[in-house]
Design a protein around this nucleic acid. Structure first.
Length: 965
RNA sequence: GCGGGCGUGGCGAAAUUGGCAGACGCACUAGACUUAGGAUCUAGCGCCUCACGGCAUGUGGGUUCGAGUCCCUCCGCCCGCACCA
């Protein structure tokens, strides 16, 4: 029987390999997803957070958000919107540079290579991006405008009176007009008397992008400064290198000026509560009061900040941060040695150490006393590193009875702990811990006695302001963002130095192109890599009158951080090829802002804050019409890896199966998940996997080696990476898309499990089979199969070739109901981003149609449209087979018709006091009141009542009727 | 410690406004077609019970004719921030 060999022929099934290739080629050559900047249609902007093109390529977790945004973008197109759905690459960054340091290969080559790979992977997923708008942050045509925006920020200041960003010239005019007094070093001078350098220094204190001597996060291993959000637990977020605090001259962005607006404007945007909360937390607004404490027998005043002025009478000492400038000045001679030693010690303790032993209490008495502003009592002044120099005034009034940190300190050094708040209805052991709660009433507090905490805070502030002891103050935890990086692979900062005065490069000379260097490392004197560049100089024009022809000045050698390019990229997509402007006015006015932004929540306090900051600054300068970059934000969950482990018996080459390992001392190691199936190790593949495994011995259970498993972050080092290319190769892109959506709610993190993918694969094949008639294969006949083929025999049918077939018959009511149920469900699901339930609905519909053997055109036609956002290749192929000439992208989303959804009548369960007694057939056309009447008049229901009268009748149309007696 | 989110079968999960809990899929079981099955089709699949029926959405309580859903208590998990005065 020769024909046996055709059994597994692909002819039988949907050939995803061929179909997907065909349509991807079609979309690319026809530029199906190109978007115009003007249209009579309403605009809709769907944006993904663009990726950093790393060498590892995409894993199955990355596309989750891209698929979701793609579904939404395709849906919006089909419902009549002009959709902007672009993609690009955040292509400046550390890994390419690290690789360059190791290999000498220029980062642009690595980056180019990685982008090509990313592009290929993204194309395979059939994401409907308009690639004509692609942006790359490392492209000079792009970073020209990043530099341009930097100059705008450099040339702007934040006017706190108007609450707006304004050009720096306005400030200069103001200074000139009023001949303002300006702080220069320690002295005050008039603006007219200042020289050029001094004026530059004064203005620098106002610019939004500014150079200052500041304490920064210095990462010695990477040789660069990092922003606060790039440091986690005292180590760098990328690489995990230790970070220390260092004072150095540094470029920063004055994001703190926008703190209040960044906080308040969160109210108006549809972002997840958790992201908003993280940002609120990061901004850390706290309202309180600054109070001055005079030093006994000295001219100094210590200014403290507190949010609890109600506890002012509980102050028993004052603590200064070790870095506080008064420490040196007020310390008595007797204490000098001890204090200096302590300050020195604190300086050398890194943040990481300080955080590691948070419980260690340390401090030293200065010998000085402050005077309590209300009681006139003398209270000791201490130095302690639990007080942070960078927050508030770097000094606190300590209230040990009502603040746990003060309590710990006071307890340790045996200081007084006066009680001033009486806890409400509670016996509190003040010897054991402090009472920090903001509830209770004031005691031992003079004019505050008897007031609640809330009232006392108000009264105390009023009194403090009345007596001119201090004033209301709002503090933020947010710090200005470090902007310069001592690295190569970033945008050069377009600043040059003329006689040490930083000056902006002329707009006409942008971009300042990243120069070639011999090595990507700092110079021998610790200068950033750009200092290696030959002739890293700028020749301003017109040349300063006094200078000779050809004089040039050194350029800035630090580069911009990774977040610079990503803080405005959403604007560039609007007009990506514009070489006159960062984006044209018309394009900006048409596209406005992002309607839907999808990306990971890990950017909550980084990118998502910076992009809001730049948007507000650009708005103030009249460059864009919106104050927020994105109306709606969705954070897709992370897809975790499911790692597998093998257990090697210590000091041997024997591996013991999971359930037998208790009897041995074993070492667990990650094993490549690709050689494990259902936790069963493929021993042969394991032997080949690594050289040292070749002679491995195994202790098996039931003849199998069972691996352990755990859910971990997907990463190369854990051998748990599942590559989307492999999935696409095996099941096809549509299947992968459907499965990723089917896994669960978009925003939930979930482990990847390849097992379930057969479900969506079956669905696609089932749909395909439904519209393909079986026909005898020519190939089969050619090899001489002379046996009669019985089309009823399922085994015979397998040898037949498929041919597309739809029936032109009108669908009946049941079939239409199935379809319209689906339309309604899928429409609603997409609107609320519940893609997983949509996939279920498709499966139900196809199951129903298969059961009804419904192969009708009028059903498939809308079905293909509904499916196109989810499984674009299959949909496009079916659409084409149905005889449509244009891509399914250009058609219309079907509307559901309610008349097909409901039956004419419904058997309502009638329950009395919640107990179901009977079912009653009632027309669905009736409204609530009519149903009620119908029920009350029904003979059968009357029988049930037996004379009782109903108290209440509850009707839920289409569902339930309950009668309360 | 503070803040945010969550808890439903063996597993991923559904239940949109308080209205038939567990849709859909995976895994599993049985059967059909088979020389064969990692194909396809049919049926079953929360727990207890031969059955009738009863019990079930982390725990305990409350509101309601009716609670997975709303309110309170406790327990557990995940995420973020954390000496921020």
């Amino acid at each position: 029987m020769k024909w046996v060999k055709f059994r597994y022929s692909y002819n039988m099934e949907y050939n995803f390999r061929e179909t997907e290739k065909k349509w991807q080629h079609y979309w690319a050559t026809h530029k199906t997803f190109r978007t115009e900047n003007s249209s009579t249609k309403k605009k809709y902007y769907v944006l993904d957070m663009f990726p950093y093109p790393s060498g590892a390529g995409l894993h199955v977790g990355h596309p989750l958000g891209y698929i979701a945004s793609d579904i939404y973008a395709r849906y919006k197109r089909l419902t009549g919107f002009n959709v902007l759905h672009p993609m690009g690459f955040d292509s400046f960054g550390l890994p390419a540079e690290q690789y360059a340091i190791q290999t000498g290969q220029h980062p642009s080559i690595t980056t180019e290579h990685n982008i090509a790979r990313y592009r290929e992977q993204l194309d395979n997923l059939a994401l409907s991006f308009d690639w004509d708008r692609e942006v790359r942050t490392s492209d000079p045509e792009y970073y020209k405008w990043t530099q341009w925006i930097f100059l705008k920020l450099f040339n702007s200041w934040y006017n706190t009176e108007t609450g707006k960003t304004e050009p720096i010239e306005k400030l200069e005019e103001k200074f000139t007009l009023h001949n303002a007094q300006c702080a220069v070093g320690a002295a005050n001078k008039s603006w007219d008397d200042l020289n050029e350098k001094e004026r530059s220094d004064v203005l620098m204190d106002y610019r939004l992008a500014y150079l200052s001597e500041a304490t920064v996060n210095w990462c010695p291993a990477m040789g660069t400064v990092l922003a606060n959000d790039e440091v986690k637990d005292g180590v760098s977020e990328r690489g995990g290198y230790p970070v220390e605090r260092k004072k150095m001259k540094q470029w920063s962005m004055r994001i703190t000026a926008f703190a209040d607006r960044l906080l308040n404007d969160l109210e108006g945007i549809d972002w997840s509560e958790s992201i908003k909360e993280q940002q609120r937390n990061w901004i850390g607004k706290s309202e309180g009061v600054e109070i001055n404490f005079a030093i006994h027998n000295a001219q100094f005043t210590i200014q403290i900040f507190t949010t609890r002025p109600d506890t002012i009478f509980g102050v028993s000492y004052i603590t200064l941060a070790p870095e506080h400038e008064l420490v040196e000045k007020i310390t008595t001679n007797a204490q000098r040695e001890a204090v200096l030693a302590y300050v020195e010690e604190s300086k050398n303790r890194s943040d990481r150490e300080r955080m590691a032993d948070i419980k260690r209490i340390s401090g030293v008495f200065t010998g000085a006393y402050a005077i309590h502003p209300f009681t006139g009592n003398q209270i000791p002044v201490w130095v302690g590193d639990y007080v942070l120099a960078g927050y508030g005034t770097g000094a606190v009034m300590a209230v040990p009875a009502h603040d746990s940190r003060d309590f710990a300190f006071a307890n340790h050094f045996n200081l007084e702990r006066p009680k001033v708040i009486q806890p409400k209805n509670a016996e509190w052991d003040f010897d054991k811990e402090s009472y920090d709660e903001k509830e209770g009433s004031c005691i031992n507090s003079d004019f505050l006695n008897g007031l609640t905490v809330k009232d006392a805070i108000k009264k105390a502030i009023d009194e403090i302001e009345k007596r001119k002891l201090g004033k209301r103050q709002i503090n933020y935890r947010l710090r200005d963002a470090a902007f310069g990086r001592q690295r190569y692979w970033g945008e050069p900062i377009p600043i040059y130095y003329e006689n040490g005065i930083p000056k902006p490069v002329d707009e006409k000379d942008l971009p300042v192109i990243l120069p070639e260097v011999d090595k990507y490392l700092p110079t021998a004197d610790g200068e950033p890599p750009l200092a290696r560049a030959k002739n890293w100089k700028y020749r301003p024009h017109p040349l300063p009158i006094s200078k000779g022809e050809g004089e040039s000045f050194p350029l800035e050698t630090t580069t911009m951080p990774g977040w610079a390019g990503s803080s405005w990229y959403f604007l560039r997509y609007m007009d990506a090829k514009n070489d006159k402007e960062f984006a044209g006015k018309d394009a900006i006015n048409y596209w406005q802002d992002v309607d839907l932004y999808i990306g990971g929540s890990e950017h909550a306090t980084g990118h998502l804050l910076y992009v809001r900051f730049w948007t507000k600054a650009l708005y103030d300068l009249g460059l864009i019409p919106v104050i927020e970059p994105a109306k709606k934000l969705i954070n897709q969950g992370m897809i975790q890896g499911r790692s597998n482990f093998v257990y090697r018996i210590k000091d041997s080459n024997t591996y013991v199966s999971k359930n037998l390992k208790e009897n041995h001392e074993t070492i667990a190691t990650n094993v490549d998940v690709n050689i494990v199936e259902d936790d069963i190790l493929d021993i042969e593949k394991f032997r080949q996997w690594r050289e040292e495994n070749a002679k491995a011995k195994f202790l098996l259970e039931d003849g199998k080696y069972i691996c352990g498993n755990e859910v971990e972050k997907m990463s190369k080092s854990k051998w748990n990476v599942v590559n989307p290319d492999d999935m696409i190769e095996k099941y096809g892109a549509d299947c992968l898309r459907l499965y990723e959506m089917f896994l669960g709610p978009l925003e939930l993190s979930k482990p990847w499990n390849t097992n379930g993918i057969s479900g969506t694969s079956n669905f696609i094949r089932k749909l395909w089979r439904l519209y393909h008639q079986r026909q005898i294969s020519n190939r089969q006949l050619a090899v001489g199969n002379e046996q009669p083929i019985n089309t009823e025999s399922k085994s015979d049918v397998q040898f037949l070739l498929n041919k597309f077939h739809v029936s032109e018959e009108k669908p009946d009511r049941k079939e239409l109901k199935s379809l319209h149920k689906l339309i309604k469900k899928v429409t609603e699901d997409i609107e609320r981003f519940s893609f997983n339930t949509s996939v279920s609905s498709f499966m139900i519909c196809v199951n129903e149609l298969t059961a009804m053997k419904c192969k009708k055109r009028e059903i498939l036609d809308p079905l293909a449209v509904l499916l196109s956002p989810y499984a674009p290749h299959v949909a496009e192929e079916l659409w084409n087979l149905l005889g449509h000439k244009e891509s399914v992208t250009y058609t219309k989303w079907p509307e559901y018709k309610a008349e097909f959804l409901n039956e004419d009548s419904f058997a309502y369960p009638i329950s009395i006091n919640g107990k179901t007694k009977m079912n009653l057939e009632i027309s669905l056309a009736l409204n609530k009141d009519e149903i009620e009447k119908e029920v009350m008049n029904s003979e059968e229901v009357k029988k049930l009542f037996q004379g009782q009268s109903p108290k209440k009748v509850i009707v839920v149309p289409g569902r339930i009727i309950n009668i309360v007696v």
